[in-house]
Design a protein around this nucleic acid. Structure first.
Lengths: 231, 231
DNA sequence: CGCCGCATTATGTCCAGACATAATACGAAA
DNA sequence: TTTCGTATTATGTCTGGACATAATGCGGCG
């Protein structure tokens, strides 16, 4: 009996409703004896199930079957170049705009960039990029970047996408992501060759390094793009 | 030194580029000795980092820093009722349609439902539901459900949403999810009181139980809805 | 020269025991 | 009766040892 077998057995008991949602299941000691393994092995299996959201564990209170199991999905955020090439298409990048200026207050606030008197303090690097797949627009990227994380001179973002440069040089940051559906709008529509009213999937990411904000980015994907995940 | 401290130390060495992307890091034995802990503790820390996508581990080959760190995000799929109530709004549900019929071939194929001669074999339960928040449309749900997983008589899906009934009674299934942006369209637009051209976020889920397909569902969210995740 | 099998090696898992920690429940004090 | 402290208890983590497993790479055989 390995911990994966224990996990499977526990899961099947939950499925079979031998242990009902909300109910406390036997303690690790008891299960260890029943399955003929050490407590550490049971612990590994139950910890794994708790991480998956199937069980809820608390010291002293014991382990109970999650009453309202929140399904947890994970998805990978690929580097766009890898994503395009993974589809067997040729990747291209076109830098539309690169300038240093003050970010809009809304973006500065989200990043935690200093704001004084209703205006952002200090300039950031603003990049507007078009990602191409087989020469056709694949995604439009609007990015504000903390110049403090960049070397001097700056990398050539017309050759390497900012995202790719960042994951290679400012790795393992934290951040949050949001998906929404919007109309392409005038500016992005013109850049991507779309009617301004076209529905497009928009990804907004906000990432921080160890202390300082790193970047805010808004990706507008071409129509038909889907974000896929596995539960 | 607990395993979390080990993890933090390893992570900071990676950030500081003491261990470069792609490079092999010292073996567990060596790290255990350096940190003055047992190998099991180092193993726990490294396993955790590998799960997060920061390290890649292979037997015999050793542990190396991920060269192209694929950022992995997780998000929770809440029960809609809980989501609405979590915003402090009143939840309501309106069952628009409930009928037994053959699913479209595209949906049957995706579920692995038997198809013969270009037509789905056997009927499924089709539900069309509107979820309300404070009386206003929150999401439109179109669902095809394997009647084999339901008891006889069927639950009252006008009172409990199918999703909620399923997570409580057919728990811990696998599935996949896809997000996309589309125009609301005639039918959904009418149900939600939206112009057919309005961009809306659409979630499509396909879930399977232990052996049989369970359900296919397409959720159309009200404009402005965002799916949020944390990296 | 090329291919296959085996020794080597790093990770994966397991055990038995121990102490740490958090949270509950119960008893004592106000 | 209420509140506070404490004993109890289940989980969390660690140790040091062991064997299992997979993948590499080398040496030998055809």
């Amino acid at each position: 009996m390995g911990w994966e077998e224990i996990r499977a057995e526990v899961l099947s008991r939950i499925r079979a409703r031998a242990w009902a949602p909300g109910a406390v299941i036997p303690g690790e000691e008891a299960l260890a004896e029943e399955f003929g393994v050490s407590r550490a092995t049971v612990n590994r299996a139950l910890t794994e199930l708790a991480r998956a959201g199937v069980l809820e564990r608390k010291r002293k209170a014991g382990t109970r079957v999650a009453a309202l199991p929140v399904r947890r999905a994970t998805f990978d955020i690929p580097v766009i170049r890898a994503e395009v090439q993974g589809r067997g298409q040729a990747y291209g990048i076109r830098l539309l705009r690169e300038e240093i200026s003050r970010p809009p207050v809304a973006i500065a606030a989200q990043l935690g960039w200093p704001i004084l008197g209703g205006e952002a303090q200090g300039a950031m690097l603003c990049l507007e990029t078009l990602h191409l797949a087989d020469g056709r627009p694949f995604a439009h990227e609007l990015r504000w970047l903390n110049p403090g994380v960049l070397p001097d001179p700056r990398p050539d973002f017309g050759a390497v996408s900012a995202n790719e440069w960042l994951v290679a040089h400012v790795p393992f940051v934290t951040g949050d992501i949001a998906f929404s559906a919007e109309a392409a709008g005038e500016e992005v529509g013109r850049a991507m060759g779309l009617d301004p009213a076209t529905p497009v999937l928009v990804t907004e990411r906000c990432t921080w390094g160890e202390a300082a904000p790193v970047t805010w980015v808004r990706l507008t994907h071409a129509p038909g793009y889907r974000v896929k995940t596995v539960v």
